[in-house]
């Protein structure tokens, strides 16, 4: 949130950005496959939980 000396310009710019982001396809923002989800969940939930449980 900027100091708004020029609010109409800011709103016009905001509208332009909203349209651009809303209409953009997911693929334009990079892929994230099932393999990524599997790796992420393994390293950040499954393995840590097992290690914590094993050391109880």
């Amino acid at each position: 949130m900027l100091e708004q000396e020029n609010v109409p310009d800011l709103v016009t710019d905001l509208e332009r950005r909203i349209d651009a982001m809303q209409n953009m396809g997911d693929a334009e923002l990079g892929g994230f496959t099932r393999l990524d989800w599997t790796i992420l969940i393994l390293i950040s939930v499954v393995i840590p939980a097992i290690v914590i449980w094993a050391l109880r």
């Binding site: 950040s44 939930v45 939980a49």
Partner: peptide, 15 residues
Amino acid sequence: QGMVCLIAGNLIGVF
């Protein structure tokens, strides 16, 4: 135990 709690706990919390 502390090392496990800090590393594994942080990973879970961040995720």
